[in-house]
């Protein structure tokens, strides 16, 4: 059998076959798979719980696929509150006629990322829907992580004087996706990755992280605007310090979009006291995913009208506004 049929979601024999296929691909990262609910024992006081749905076109892109994106995205959301991921749930919504070959690739990515992060899948679901009711495959996850650390990490906690640090180059994911969508043959690769190891290192070393966010949809400028608003502070970034690959800048120029608003899928923005910024950078740069970490700005003052500013190449200052829609590439 090459393609998924509606009957694979019918509850009958074909459904059993599809489930068996999925379990085979995922192997022992799935636990409790014969029951209607997964049962786990948790003794800690504080749990982090997150859920997200993943829809992306194209589902395979340079540097990853929708499976890797779903796992890393969920892990990163947990890490952003200092949660160390333990369990995930996984729901697949699949369009009739989707190929088993592609499904296998996606499941293999899921397995790889889950193994790397040492997490287990405790519950799951599969639905098959008729053609054109959805586009290829959607994935929904929920993630459960344990909060073992005492740092009070949240969006309201950015303090005047704090340093703003980013763990790597900005906009790689957005640029790689844009390149594929526009039929550009390019070397761009998505930064899609788990930032859990980076964050765990910082927490282990007792870095006093005030605020932590992953700049996914809306990119760096959007999440820093959100932090500014939540913490009632002004934030200033320095254009020369923001790490952006030439190729990413290039494709942004061509398409008329701004890399500061482009999605990253393997980066985190860390706001911590200035006197811990050097140590933070040192810890981050030890790991491959954090080797281009950079201090890109600072929290300036408390503000009733919170703004994100950019100090440009010429030393001038302008506002980086919160834009109301996702950027669409210019054509002419």
């Amino acid at each position: 059998m090459e393609y998924i049929l509606l009957s694979h979601g019918s509850g009958g024999k074909n459904s059993q076959r599809l489930l068996k296929f999925i379990y085979n691909c995922l192997g022992d990262i799935v636990i409790n798979h014969s029951e209607d609910s997964g049962i786990v024992t948790i003794t800690q006081d504080k749990l982090a719980i997150t859920t997200d749905s993943y829809v992306i076109e194209p589902i395979f892109f340079p540097g990853g696929d929708i499976g890797k994106l779903a796992i890393c995205g969920t892990l990163n959301d947990l890490a952003m509150v200092g949660g160390i991921p333990k369990y995930l749930t996984l729901s697949l919504m699949i369009e009739e006629n989707f190929s088993f070959g592609d499904l296998k690739k996606i499941l293999t990515s899921i397995k790889e990322e889950a193994e790397k992060a040492e997490i287990r899948i405790i519950a799951g679901d599969t639905k098959v829907v008729s053609k054109s009711k959805l586009d290829k495959i959607f994935i929904n996850t929920a993630g459960y992580g344990i909060i073992e650390y005492s740092q009070n990490i949240n969006s309201h906690n950015a303090q005047p004087g704090d340093a703003v640090i980013v763990t790597g180059d900005i906009g790689d994911h957005g640029a790689a996706i844009m390149a594929v969508r526009n039929d550009f043959e390019s070397d761009l690769i998505s930064d899609c990755a788990s930032v859990v190891p980076l964050i765990k290192n910082l927490l282990d070393e007792s870095i006093n992280i005030h605020t932590l966010r992953d700049p996914t949809r809306g990119g760096l400028a959007s999440i820093l605007n959100e932090i500014a608003i939540s913490s009632s502070v002004d934030i200033e970034l320095e254009e020369v310090k923001i790490p952006i690959k030439d190729a990413v800048n290039g494709i942004c120029d061509i398409l008329g979009i701004d890399p500061l608003y482009m999605a990253c899928e393997g980066r985190a923005v860390i706001i911590c006291p200035e006197n811990e910024s050097e140590k933070t950078l040192k810890i981050l740069r030890k790991t491959d995913t954090g080797k281009n970490a950079e201090k890109i700005g600072k929290v300036i003052d408390k503000s009733e009208n919170p703004r994100l500013y950019l100090k440009t190449f010429i030393g001038s200052r302008r506002i980086l506004p919160l834009l109301s829609r996702e950027q669409t590439p210019r054509i002419c």
Binding site: A179, F184, E185, S186, L188, D246, A247, I251, I254
Partner: peptide
């Protein structure tokens, strides 16, 4: 290049 067409590279992107 070939006739009035050419392949050009911009930051690794070919057009």
């Amino acid at each position: 290049k070939k006739g009035i067409k050419a392949i050009a590279d911009v930051f690794g992107i070919k057009k």
